[in-house]
Structure formats: structure tokens, C-alpha cells
Write a protein that binds this DNA or RNA. Structure first.
Lengths: 141, 141
DNA sequence: ATAAATGCAAAGCATTTGCAGTAAA
DNA sequence: TTTACTGCAAATGCTTTGCATTTAT
């Protein structure tokens, strides 16, 4: 019988380290391929046969909300995920879908008249085009 | 029906100027709201009661392929469309979804070592954050 | 003990497609 | 007449959700 009223509010602050989540984090760690949820599901399923899409999406959304990973919108078809949350930019091949990091020398500043009104949370530069391999293939055909 | 713009089609196919397409083009002309397909559907349906989503999507895809409009991926939930195909960038409020044009002074160049391999078709800078109105509302609550 | 995560299947949206009828050229 | 477009509805693809069960803490 609780004589003490020690209700803590379950405000969802704890992150449980389940094997599924650890497997997803392990797959993402150092991964520069900018995988989609499906890529991650397929990769992690090889180890965890019971892995479900729901778990992958739940985990990715939780991690993104926590700022542990970044959700990219550069691919018009599906979300892509990036474990590198440092400031950098991307280049995507519109033919094969490959996404490459751009880590050097690109900085952008919002013009002052907008910067006054708008609270900037993040910025991102994206390049679209054809990668070396796909350029070759196109010439060939 | 004559329009002021001549579309050169190429590809051996002709672009038929149907009333539905003209209505979509009229709605987009000078529009800086970066509407989604659904926004366009709802707006144009008021005039054309029989308008279908298929026609909206078909038309938008045709126009985007022809380079008459631009498809934006800045919104993670749905595609947004921009009749301004000149080089400019965008800022989006993550709270209300509003997208604003940035036309001044931002230029980006791909680092040389990437520029050699990669054929750049386009580049785009995007800022995410809170607009003035949503900033206020957040403070208030 | 208990709050939270899992897995499944079903649902939810945005977008695309097949096809028969219709209209622009 | 010929070819392309429209509209409907069904289908697709990505993502989310409800819920009963299991698990980390």
C-alpha cells in the first residue's frame, strides 16, 4: 500500500535500448548512404528476423525528434535518413538516387529583412544532377 | 485559345490547351503561395466542377517535365509547385507550412572536386523555421 | 511494477494508372 | 480523323496507427 503519493508523470522521456533500436543505430552509425526507411528495414531484418516496419518508422521518428539523426527531404519519393547531424549539405543523382555529402565551404545566410521576422531552425543546400556513373550510362545509350 | 506563352514541346507530342489546363495555368500564373496539388485541385474545382485529381496531377507533371513549373521537395508531406522557374530559393515555416521566396543574393557553387564528376542540373537552398505569426502564437500559448 | 516498445495488420494520405468516353488539333 | 486528355475508380507506395503482447528499466 503506497502511503506516499509518488506518481511520476509518464511524460515519455526515457529511451529504451531495445535490441531492435540498437540494431538500427548500429546500422546507421557512420553510414553515409542516406538510406530510406525501407533500406534500413531490409538491412536490419537480416539480423532481426522479426523486425517490423512500424518499429523502424517509430524508431526513426523518435531519433529524428531527439536530434540524433536527420530526416532528408531531398528525395521526392521517400524520406532519407542521415546519422550525421553536423551542418552539411547534399547532392543527389536524379537517375540512381545516390546522395552524397557536401561538407566543405558552403555557407548561407538568410537576407536580413527576412532574418528579422523568421526564426531559422536549419538550412540545407541541395544539388540535383547526374553522377559520374549515370552520366556515362546515358551517353552510352 | 491563344495564350501569351508559346510552349515548345519537342518529343513529337503536342500540348493540348484544354480548359482544365488553362484554368490550372491561370491559377498558377503569378501565384507565390507554392500550392500543393490538393490546393490547386480545390481552387480550380470552384470554376471547373468536373475537375479530377488525375487531371491536376497529369497536368502538373507535364508542366514540370516541360520546365514550365517547378516541383518543390521542401515540404516533407507533399509536393509543392512553383510557377516561378527562375533561380531562387525558399524558406518554409515548419509550423504552418507557409513557403516564402528568397530571390536575393544567395549563390552556391559545388566544390570543384565534385563538380568534375557530377553534372549539376539544379540547386536549391532551403531554410526551415518559424514565421513571424507562428513565433507569436507559440509565445502566447 | 509499469511505462514504453514491439509486431501485426489495417488504415491513411499522396500520387499514379488503366481504361472508356470525350474533345482538341 | 487522329491523337491526346479527361474523369472515374482502383491501385500503388510510403508512412502511420490501434491494439494486444512483450520487454526494458
Amino acid at each position: 500500500m503506497p502511503t506516499k503519493h509518488d506518481h511520476k508523470k509518464g511524460m515519455g522521456t526515457s529511451f529504451k535500448r531495445t535490441p531492435q533500436r540498437l540494431a538500427i543505430l548500429a546500422y546507421l552509425d557512420g553510414n553515409t548512404s542516406h538510406p530510406s526507411a525501407d533500406d534500413i528495414y531490409r538491412a536490419v531484418s537480416k539480423k532481426y528476423h522479426s523486425m517490423s516496419f512500424a518499429t523502424v518508422y517509430n524508431t526513426l521518428n523518435t531519433l529524428a525528434k531527439a536530434g540524433t539523426i536527420r530526416e532528408l527531404t531531398i528525395d521526392p519519393v521517400r524520406k532519407r535518413f542521415d546519422p550525421d547531424v553536423s551542418r552539411h549539405h547534399h547532392l543527389m543523382c536524379v537517375h540512381c538516387g545516390k546522395i552524397v555529402d557536401i561538407t566543405e565551404g558552403l555557407t548561407v545566410d538568410l537576407p536580413k529583412e527576412l532574418a528579422q521576422d523568421f526564426e531559422v531552425l536549419g538550412s540545407h543546400i541541395e544539388f540535383h544532377g547526374h553522377c559520374a556513373q549515370c552520366k556515362k550510362k546515358r551517353k552510352a545509350s
